[in-house]
């Protein structure tokens, strides 16, 4: 009996590591090729045609780089880029200042720290669309909670969502609410990754807490903070859901981000060719930022070895 079993086992050729590796990678690779690589190539091609997905009976016309020329000379698009840029700069800056202050006090252990930490992480995991509506409710100029506090403090009520600059502040407050936890998470990981003995050595050397923080903690956390910075940059650059729910692009179209504008061109006007071109532009910017991100990541990997 035992003999037969051994024979059958040795007859059946075991799967080699190479084959197994390929089989393991295949499903992920397959779905990513279908959902990322194929669309990207197809977008590149479509961006050189003038056509609309709505009118299938009209033959696409090859227009070369016309779509790009048109987009890049379109002042509307530049306005969207400028607004998106403003939003990105303000929101990321605010989030970093806030997150580093909070993370500084969250890096040491105290009673209830883990619970507090867990609670603080919740917002980044919530549905942006729900968050958008929630803040839209809070920012309502008549019955919103925000103006209730503003008037209680003795100021006059603010028209949060009806004025562009106020709307920007409102979106930044909401986006900061949602994404500061992400920066806190990485900042705490970075701060806690610094060996205790390094901090102790500096304490003994007579360095003040401020001196230690600016000369040791911050420079040594720079790579991970850099990663957090890039991810936040990319994420806020492509922000769509929050604006959709909170401002809807209003007042006018002054709070439309690039993503928002792209959705409009593609699915309201159905200028599919032009939308493809804009999608390509957006992707190129994101890929550029991602490449920096990967470079940072590999540098960290090397440092840790």
């Amino acid at each position: 009996m035992a003999d037969t079993q051994t024979t059958t086992r040795s007859l059946r050729k075991p799967i080699g590591d190479r084959t197994l590796c390929t089989l393991f990678l295949l499903p992920s690779l397959g779905i990513l090729a279908m959902m990322v690589a194929y669309p990207f190539v197809s977008l590149l091609i479509n961006s050189t045609y003038r056509f609309s997905a709505l009118r299938n009976n009209v033959e696409p016309v090859f227009v070369g780089t016309d779509n790009f020329d048109f987009l890049l000379s379109d002042p509307d698009l530049w306005d969207r880029f400028v607004f998106t840029g403003q939003f990105v700069v303000v929101t990321v800056t605010v989030q970093f200042i806030l997150a580093i202050a909070v993370a500084y006090y969250l890096q040491r252990d105290f009673k209830g720290r883990d619970l507090l930490f867990t609670i603080l992480m919740i917002p980044m995991m919530l549905s942006p669309i729900v968050i958008g509506f929630l803040w839209r409710y809070i920012f309502n100029s008549e019955w919103g909670l925000m103006n209730f506090f503003v008037t209680q403090l003795g100021f006059s009520a603010i028209d949060w969502l009806g004025v562009t600059d106020n709307a920007l502040v409102a979106v930044v407050i909401a986006d900061t609410w949602m994404w500061t936890p992400f920066v806190i998470l990485l900042a705490v990981a970075a701060f806690r990754g610094i060996p205790v003995s390094i901090q102790e050595a500096a304490t003994i050397d007579g360095a003040s807490p401020f001196f230690r923080f600016t000369r040791l903690t911050l420079p040594m956390s720079a790579p991970i903070l850099g990663i957090a910075f890039l991810l936040r940059l990319i994420d806020s650059f492509k922000q769509y859901d929050l604006f959709f729910a909170l401002t809807g692009g209003a007042p006018g179209s002054t709070t439309e981000t690039v993503s928002f504008y792209l959705a409009k061109v593609a699915f309201s006007y159905f200028y599919t060719g032009e939308a493809s071109a804009l999608a390509v532009i957006q992707l190129v910017i994101i890929i550029g930022l991602s490449l920096i991100f990967v470079r940072l990541l590999t540098r960290i990997g090397r440092q840790r070895q």
């Binding site: 060996p195 390094i198 050595a201 500096a202 003994i204 420079p219 720079a222």
Partner: peptide
């Protein structure tokens, strides 16, 4: 006082 630690505590940057 000055102290030298078991695991090197130099500032890598």
């Amino acid at each position: 006082v000055a102290m030298v630690f078991q695991f090197v505590s130099l500032y890598p940057h």
